[in-house]
Simulated scan of single mutants.
Amino acid sequence: MERPSLLYLVKQLELVVRARLDEIVRTGGITALQYTALTVLERHDGLSAAQLARDSFVTAQTMADMVRALESRGLIHRERNPANRRELLIHLTDEGRGLLAQYVKPVRELEEEMTGRLTEAQAAGFRHALIDSWQALASIS
């Protein structure tokens, strides 16, 4: 029997992680995609919608809808970019930071469950392999 391709396995992992993450963050009234966008802002506050879309792996239209939803919930706010008055920069609010703080432990537990059958060295190697693989493909585009 032929082994499944790495691309297939990566997609399977992505799908199960996203489903489990959706279950976790549903209690806060957000989706896994919204959670991802909020965590991007937590690391890099003050992004444009286009930058946030790229870093969150969604289309510009999806991000536009997401920004409206997150802003209406008070999780983010937008303000004019002083360097480019036509551009709005998106910032995480204190309420957004508070919501993310609620999920630190359950998300860490999900990651630990995912890597639970690996040794510490294998988990570190897995992390490095994923980063290297992503960088190899991201540098092409």
Rank of each mutant, 00 (worst) to 15 (best):
M1S: 15
M1A: 15
E2C: 14
E2H: 15
E2Y: 14
E2R: 15
R3G: 10
S5D: 15
Y8I: 12
L9Y: 09
V10W: 15
K11L: 12
Q12D: 10
Q12T: 06
Q12I: 10
L13T: 10
E14M: 06
V16H: 05
R18E: 12
R20S: 10
E23C: 04
I24E: 06
V25A: 10
T27D: 11
G28P: 02
G29C: 08
A32M: 02
A32T: 02
L33C: 05
Q34H: 08
Y35Q: 05
A37Y: 01
T39F: 01
E42H: 09
E42T: 09
R43M: 10
H44L: 06
G46F: 01
G46D: 04
L47K: 07
L47T: 05
S48K: 03
A50R: 02
Q51H: 05
A53C: 05
R54M: 06
D55L: 11
D55V: 03
S56V: 03
S56G: 03
S56T: 05
F57H: 10
V58F: 10
T59F: 04
T59I: 08
A60P: 08
T62D: 12
T62R: 13
M63F: 13
A64S: 12
V67M: 14
V67H: 14
A69M: 12
L70P: 02
L70F: 10
L70E: 08
L70V: 05
R73L: 07
I76A: 01
I76V: 12
H77N: 00
R80T: 00
R80C: 00
R80G: 01
A83N: 01
N84P: 00
R85Q: 01
R86E: 03
E87N: 03
L88D: 07
L88G: 02
L89S: 11
I90M: 04
H91T: 11
H91Y: 14
T93A: 08
E95A: 15
G96Y: 03
R97N: 15
R97D: 15
L99M: 15
L99H: 11
Q102T: 07
Y103C: 03
K105G: 06
E109T: 02
L110I: 07
L110Y: 04
E113W: 03
R117A: 04
A121L: 13
G125F: 06
F126L: 14
H128L: 14
H128P: 04
L130N: 14
D132Q: 14
Q135T: 13
A136L: 13
L137V: 12
I140S: 06
